[in-house]
Amino acid sequence: MRLNSIKPAAGANPSRRRVGRGIGSGLGKTAGRGHKGQKSRAGGFHKVGFEGGQMPLQRRLPKRGFVSLTRKDTVEVRLSALDRMAGDAIDMLALKQAGVIPSSALTVKVILSGTIERAVKVQGIAVTKGAKAAIEAVGGSVE
């Protein structure tokens, strides 16, 4: 079998519907658009969610919840990622240079996930209670 000889199964790609090509095509005259009305006309368009002047659903329902604008700027780092890093002093610049976090990250938080076997000095990074206890248990420090 060659890549250039592969073809889709018979009937898998039906030919596209040719509308407005005469009565014999089955889609002549109105071309499947029905009679009259905005959707039958060329350029007949209304915005998504428009309900003919009725108050649209997205405006009838109450607003709910909250999405933080800074969510994409915050990154979580596992303890196991700190364990794999070279060097004892770990700050945001060291994490970016090691490729652990993206360069666009503005805030970092170390979470208790995985294990850490060596003493590291964490500087200028947010750390959860559990992660802080785990770092200090192996002789490390959090500043």
Rank of each mutant, 00 (worst) to 15 (best):
82 L>H: 12
82 L>C: 10
82 L>S: 05
83 D>P: 10
83 D>M: 11
83 D>S: 10
84 R>N: 07
84 R>C: 06
85 M>L: 08
85 M>W: 07
85 M>Y: 06
86 A>C: 00
86 A>W: 02
87 G>W: 02
87 G>C: 00
87 G>I: 01
87 G>E: 06
87 G>L: 01
87 G>S: 02
88 D>A: 07
88 D>V: 08
89 A>M: 15
89 A>C: 13
89 A>W: 15
89 A>V: 15
89 A>S: 15
89 A>Q: 13
90 I>D: 02
90 I>V: 15
90 I>T: 11
91 D>T: 05
91 D>W: 05
91 D>A: 05
92 M>L: 13
92 M>P: 06
94 A>E: 10
94 A>V: 12
95 L>R: 08
95 L>T: 07
95 L>H: 10
96 K>V: 07
96 K>I: 00
96 K>A: 00
96 K>W: 07
97 Q>G: 04
97 Q>I: 07
97 Q>A: 03
98 A>W: 02
98 A>M: 04
98 A>T: 05
98 A>L: 03
99 G>R: 06
99 G>N: 02
99 G>V: 06
99 G>C: 02
99 G>Y: 02
100 V>M: 08
100 V>Q: 13
100 V>T: 10
100 V>P: 03
101 I>Q: 02
102 P>L: 10
103 S>C: 12
103 S>Q: 13
103 S>H: 10
103 S>I: 14
103 S>V: 10
104 S>M: 01
104 S>F: 06
104 S>L: 08
105 A>T: 02
106 L>K: 11
106 L>V: 14
106 L>A: 13
106 L>N: 14
107 T>W: 11
108 V>T: 09
108 V>G: 03
108 V>Y: 04
108 V>L: 06
109 K>C: 14
109 K>Q: 14
109 K>G: 14
109 K>N: 09
110 V>W: 05
110 V>E: 03
110 V>N: 05
110 V>A: 08
110 V>S: 02
111 I>M: 14
111 I>L: 14
111 I>Q: 12
111 I>C: 15
111 I>D: 13
112 L>F: 10
112 L>G: 02
112 L>W: 07
112 L>E: 08
112 L>A: 10
113 S>F: 12
113 S>T: 13
113 S>Q: 15
113 S>K: 15
113 S>A: 15
114 G>P: 05
114 G>K: 03
114 G>H: 07
115 T>D: 07
115 T>S: 10
116 I>Q: 01
116 I>T: 00
116 I>S: 02
116 I>E: 04
117 E>C: 11
117 E>F: 11
117 E>L: 12
117 E>N: 12
118 R>W: 12
118 R>M: 09
119 A>H: 04
119 A>M: 01
119 A>W: 03
119 A>D: 03
120 V>Y: 04
120 V>G: 00
120 V>C: 00
120 V>I: 05
120 V>K: 01
120 V>P: 01
120 V>H: 04
121 K>T: 00
121 K>S: 06
121 K>D: 05
121 K>V: 05
122 V>N: 11
123 Q>I: 09
